[in-house]
């Protein structure tokens, strides 16, 4: 064995396409499943969250206005880059979740496959979820799905990569921009994902990742007036009702109402539930024959 010193990393947040330190200057220890030191992660504050929301809002017109085809291309390219970092993700998932390497490998493969699956949905959403409505009148009436806006994702606390991908990918595939609060105990796969996104073609601000304590951050995210929807899957269970009430104050869409913090079996096919959750339906009535 060499007597080389280990390089202990101190990671940063991912906001607006940049990697800033937390405004609060706080970091916390990230341990592996057995309690060994892995790295330091920034402990984001409500002000970091505010910056993230500002960045997401700024990125929204560009991302939601991009063609579905273009969004699909960008997402697919990210899947390619995830594939290139496969070994790193396997190691991180193994350490974070304490699963055997084989199992971790399967989880990472499935996460990449799921990213590809959602990438394929971008240009199919309008045809599958939209409609030409038969109406009793001389009108042409049609319905198109449009992204909800800025989505706050409280990422799953347990499933560090597959769960994260399964919550973030559908939101951005539909054209939303996101503010993601990563798992507190298992943030490293999320941070590595942010490093992948930072070097991909994804415009800055479409995904913003804040690591830290969901108990501290979730109430600010749920109450923020410039956030249009929240996904409560990684929310602290005990805060569920409070978060829903806060979200109602500014009429947010809430995904996972009544089951905050309850993670499904992420390895099962996800269906269209999350794609549908962050879309609004616009119906247009057009005088016929014009």
């Amino acid at each position: 064995m060499s007597d080389r010193l280990a390089v202990a990393k101190t990671y940063k947040l991912y906001i607006g396409g940049k990697f800033p330190r937390s405004e609060s200057g706080r970091v916390y220890r990230v341990n592996d499943a057995k309690g060994g030191f892995l790295a330091n992660a920034p402990q984001g504050s409500r002000k970091d969250l505010r910056e993230a929301v500002t960045a997401a809002r700024k990125a929204f017109p560009g991302w939601s206005g991009a063609t579905a085809y273009n969004r699909g291309q960008v997402l697919y390219r990210i899947a390619e880059m995830l594939e290139g970092r496969r070994e790193q993700f396997v190691a991180e998932v193994t350490a974070a979740e304490g699963v055997p390497a084989k199992r971790a490998q399967a989880l990472v493969d499935q996460a990449i496959d799921r990213w590809v699956w959602y990438a394929g949905w971008t240009d199919k959403l309008a045809t599958v979820l939209g409609a030409a409505n038969p109406v009793a009148g001389p009108y042409f009436s049609f319905t198109v799905p449009e992204p909800t806006g800025v989505v706050g994702v409280l990422a799953p606390q347990d499933s560090s990569l597959l769960g994260l991908v399964s919550t973030v990918a559908p939101a951005i595939a539909a054209g939303n921009t996101t503010v993601v609060v990563a798992s507190r105990e298992r943030p490293l796969p999320a941070i590595s994902l942010s490093e992948v996104l930072g070097t991909s073609d994804l415009p800055g601000g479409v995904v913003n990742l804040v690591t830290g304590n969901a108990v501290e951050l979730a109430p600010w995210l749920a109450a923020h007036a410039d956030v249009n929807a929240v996904d409560l899957v990684g929310a602290p269970e005990i805060l569920g009702t409070e978060l829903e009430r806060a979200a109602a104050g500014t009429v947010k869409r809430v995904f996972g109402a009544g089951r905050a913090g309850q993670e499904p079996d992420w390895t099962r096919p996800p269906g269209m539930e999350r794609l549908r959750a962050f879309l609004e339906h616009k119906t247009v009535w057009h005088p016929q024959g014009v």
């Binding site: 600010w220 109450a223 007036a225 410039d226 956030v227």
Partner: peptide, 9 residues
């Protein structure tokens, strides 16, 4: 109000 506001308001 104790929470962040937005440009829609």
């Amino acid at each position: 109000t104790g929470h962040y506001s937005g440009a829609d308001y």
